[in-house]
């Protein structure tokens, strides 16, 4: 379902097109949508945390929620989880009202807990077995889930003796142990090392491949670009952009940047090159912005050669910074 990308480099030039095509192939989903929000608002005192959010997440979608700290992402996710009640607007999760603590809905949701939410003095396996029992599922789900998140070797380690990354993986396991349909993950890769992060990506892709819906928040834009079918960017309580990563990037400023070793390209020469819109210096590199990278590259090749030259196409990060930056 998800095209396997051999090495997802941030800003790789082809990502835009493929992500767009892939999102177009998202199945419409069976039955009611996973999540439906209409004009949801929530304030703390006079400060609006969620300020009129409307969107629909179809079944089977991998949905990313991005935004700076304090943008209201956590509050919005907690409203979808049913942990908070919105001041106004309507929320429907798998066709249910989540704030009611509906025993028919809860086992269908998986929620990544805080990395502190463990039963004290239990081992990782015992904790997960307890969580499985709370969901009313068999305890062998615990062993399988530990394997999924790569904690088999730590199964008999007490939860308070796990490392930060291991605790985080156990918290993710708490969201998966009962095989839920809709999974909420809150910055699941934040405390993971690069290898564990890539391993988790595979876990998430497999879940999506199995038809699960995933809603997740992250600060890693390369990851969102790589994994998400659609991305919503939230700023000051409102959704400022919502689309496939590919279309968001295409709609952003189309400038490509060429980075040329400064020693080989004097600033004046760079400014005079055809097709170059703007030139800046960044450390020992000269950065050329161009809307026509073919022409500009040919010109650079003539005056400075191409050795050591790097190209940077627009990434989701650029779009994100444009949308969330100080305007």
């Amino acid at each position: 379902m998800q095209p396997t990308s051999p090495d997802p480099t941030p800003g790789a030039s082809s990502t835009g097109a493929s992500a767009g095509a892939e999102a177009g192939g998202t199945p419409p989903g069976s039955g009611e949508p996973a999540v439906e929000l209409a004009d949801v608002r929530k304030s703390y005192g006079s400060k609006p945390a969620v300020d009129g959010v409307t969107f629909t997440v179809p079944r089977g979608e991998f949905f990313g929620l991005l935004g700076p700290n304090g943008a209201g992402k956590t509050t919005l996710v907690e409203i979808m989880e049913g942990l908070r009640r919105p001041d106004s607007g309507t929320v429907s999760v798998l066709g249910h009202l989540p704030s009611k603590r509906d025993a028919a809905l809860l086992p269908r949701l998986g929620v990544q807990t805080q990395s502190s939410a463990f039963f004290v003095r239990l081992t990782a396996r015992e904790h997960l077995e307890t969580v499985a029992a709370l969901y009313g599922v068999e305890r062998d789900g615990a062993k399988r889930t530990l394997e999924t998140v790569g904690l088999t070797a730590q199964a008999e380690v007490r939860v308070d003796e796990l490392s930060g990354g291991q605790r985080q993986r156990l918290a993710i396991a708490s969201a998966l142990v009962h095989d839920p349909e809709l999974i909420f993950l809150d910055e699941p890769t934040a405390a993971l090392d690069p290898q564990a992060r890539r391993d988790l990506w595979q876990v998430l892709r497999d879940l999506k491949g199995a038809g699960r819906t995933i809603i997740y928040t992250t600060h890693h834009l390369d990851e969102a670009q790589e994994l998400c079918d659609r991305v919503a960017i939230m700023v000051r309580g409102a959704i400022t952009a919502l689309d496939t990563p590919g279309r968001l990037i295409a709609a952003g400023t189309g400038d490509t940047r060429l980075l040329v070793p400064a020693a080989r390209l004097p600033l004046e020469t760079a400014r005079a090159l055809p097709g170059v819109a703007n030139v800046t210096v960044d450390g020992d590199m000269v950065v050329l912005r161009t809307s026509d990278s073919g022409v500009a590259l040919a010109e650079v090749a003539k005056v400075a050669g191409l050795e050591g030259v790097q190209t940077r196409t627009v990434s989701l990060e650029d779009v994100y910074l444009q949308l969330t930056g100080p305007s």
Binding site: L83, L106, L109, S116, F119, L134, G136, S174
Partner: peptide
Amino acid sequence: MQWRRDDLLRLIRMTPT
């Protein structure tokens, strides 16, 4: 107190228990 502080009560809140 501990269950609330560690968010364990929130975990229980999200289960049908």
